[in-house]
């Protein structure tokens, strides 16, 4: 089934992106290039829908990704004809196209200068600000990108996407406490996002297991991660990613039990007793094996899982089983 053009294509696999961009000539031929706003022509032609422009935008992104610049330029032309040159979203798309066309770093610097120029005229242009930060990061100037992003979040603190980007930036630099803080801000803005809960859990697990991450905060991160994964499962039944994380964390907690009760005395966090951890581990194992079994058997109603995630879960389970049999022997 071909993916819909109505959703942003950023999370698609390469093959579905290719599928989408191969549709480009058909879509471009069948859709009207301009829609007249005069009431007389509206009587005779199909009325304008918002879907059409979303389609063009998503097609533009897919085509850029697959290197079909001609179709991308056509999409952009139609969007410009409809919304004009000074629409903020269109400006960002134009910049994106220029970034994709740039051959070397000098040309990218020119694009960056253009962004700065636009921002000096209107520094509340959010799409362009985001493009500028993304370009800075793409050029490898990570600290510049981070400081611009912090600046941006000062005047737009409710932008969950930007907080999430900041978390990712910090995580890439290995600054775990900052990354976790930024991710918690995302959760404040979207408290029901089960994937963000799981992502935060993953970050805390990474912080706990990172080299040099041991020490007093090791247990604290693990317990926090345990909480996050549990919450993601609470928000979403049969959440493979949540159970996977839960299994990893509980296995770790069982392997190295609390070295001392010193940390609990500080009152910052309390370690769940080993009985609870054991039971959570069993639950995660049972659920993971059920998901893997049913998903591999392609049972109806169990086909929505990502193939790679299922494979990873199966490997984790078999690793766990072999470790268990080694202990028994």
């Amino acid at each position: 089934m071909a993916p819909s053009l109505l959703h942003p294509p950023s999370q698609l696999s390469p093959s579905s992106a290719l599928q989408l961009s191969q549709q480009a000539p058909i879509v471009l031929r069948d859709s009207p290039s301009t829609v007249s706003s005069s009431p007389f022509t509206a009587l005779f032609s199909a009325s304008e829908t918002a879907d059409l422009w979303i389609k063009y935008e998503n097609l533009l992104l897919s085509c850029l990704r697959t290197g079909d610049e001609r179709a991308a330029h056509q999409c952009l032309e139609r969007l410009v004809a409809r919304f004009g040159d000074d629409n903020e979203r269109i400006m960002a798309l134009k910049g994106l196209l220029k970034e994709a066309d740039a051959q070397n770093n000098d040309e990218l610097e020119v694009v960056l200068k253009e962004y700065d120029q636009i921002l000096s005229e209107n520094d509340t242009n959010i799409p362009i600000t985001k493009r500028r930060i993304a370009l800075l990061r793409s050029l490898g100037r990570v600290s510049d990108a981070a400081s611009s992003l912090v600046q941006f979040l000062k005047f737009s603190p409710t932008d969950a996407e930007a907080w999430s980007e900041l978390a990712d930036l910090y995580l890439a630099q290995g600054m775990y406490p900052q990354a976790i803080y930024a991710m918690e801000e995302v959760l404040v803005l979207a408290p029901n996002a089960w994937n963000i809960h799981a992502r935060l859990g993953e970050m805390q697990y990474m912080a706990a297991t990172a080299p040099g991450g041991g020490g007093p905060s090791y247990q604290k991160y693990l317990v926090e991660a345990l909480k996050r994964f549990s919450r993601s499962i609470e928000l979403c039944d049969n959440y493979l990613r949540g159970y996977y994380g839960l299994k990893l964390v509980t296995t770790k907690l069982i392997k190295d039990p609390a070295k001392s009760t010193k940390q609990t005395d500080e009152g910052e966090f309390t370690l769940p007793d080993s009985d609870t951890v054991e039971r959570l581990n069993e639950l995660a194992t049972a659920k993971l094996s059920e998901i893997v079994r049913r998903s591999i058997a392609q049972e109806s109603g169990w086909r929505g899982f990502d193939k790679l995630e299922v494979t990873a879960a199966r490997e984790l389970l078999s690793e766990d089983a072999s470790a268990a049999s080694r202990i028994e022997r």
Partner: peptide
């Protein structure tokens, strides 16, 4: 729409188009 919160992880406003193109070329 699938998971409505997925865009918080994929962040379409911050896409690195050059990286995506490189990845796609490598995939091909």
């Amino acid at each position: 729409v699938g998971n409505p919160f997925r865009s918080l992880e994929t962040r379409p406003g911050f896409i690195d188009i050059r990286k995506q193109r490189k990845e796609f070329a490598a995939w091909v």
